[in-house]
Amino acid sequence: MAEGELHIEHLHKAYGDHVVLDDINLVVEPGEVVVVIGPSGCGKSTLLRCINGLEEIQGGQILLDGDVVDGSSKDIASLRAKLGMVFQSYELFPHKTVLENVTLAPTVVQKRPKDEVEAEAIALLERVGLADRAKDFPRQLSGGQKQRVALARALAMKPEILLLDEITAALDPEMVHEVLDVILSLAREGKTMIIVTHEMSFARAVADRIIFIDEGAIVEEAAPADFFDNPTTERAQKFLRTFEYEK
C-alpha cells in the first residue's frame, strides 16, 4: 500500500444505542482532497475522530498504510504522527508561545534536534504569514491567526494526511479567507486532506471528491461539479437548498 493511503471499511460507531456512523466505506488516495459535508450532527466530526483513533469504534476497521488505527493500542502515537488534525476551536496550548506550539511535537514525539525543528517551524510560520508572531502567546492572536498557527503545528509533524474539522466555523467572516487560502495552497501542492466544512464555494474549489453524509451514512459521493450542479439524491438536494436564499 502506498504512503498516506487510508482505507475505511464497514466503519460502525455508536454511543450506547445511538448509532452515529453506520457502515462507512471510504478509500482516500495519496494526494487526494476529500471534502465531507452534511447537516449538523450527521457524524462528520465523529468520522474524523475515529480516523485519528480518538474514538473507540464498534465495528469495521480503519487502515492507514495498511496498519490498523486503534486508539487503545500502544502504537497509536506513531500512527497519529502521520495524521495531522486541526479542530474548530484551534486548541493551541495557552502556556506555550506560537513557536513552542509548533515545535513541541517534533521535539518531544519525534525527538528531532531542536535547532533543526525550530528552523522548520519558522519556515512553516512564514508560510502561514505569522513568522513575526513566533514569540507571542496564543491569547495575543486573532482567531484566524490562531487557526493558522494550529495548521503550522499540525504540518510540523509532516503528516501524510491532514484532517480538518470545520476549521473556519468559529472565525469572523473576514478571517475565513486567510485560513482557506493556506488550505488551497496545500491542496495545490498535493497534500492529502479530509476536510469537513460548511463553506460550499471553498468545498467546490478545493475538493477532488465530495462525500455527503446524512444520518451517519454516506448518501452521495461525487466530483464537486457534479455534486453541486446535479445532486442525484433527494437529501443532498434538500441540504444544498439550505444554502440558497430567495426573496
Binding site: 502515537a77 497519529r80 495531522g84 486548541e91 511535537a105 499540525a154 509533524m157
Partner: peptide, 10 residues
C-alpha cells in the same frame, strides 16, 4: 486540550 496533545502523537 488533551485531544490536541493526543492528536499530535504525544
Amino acid at each position: 486540550q488533551y485531544e490536541a496533545a493526543e492528536a499530535l502523537g504525544l
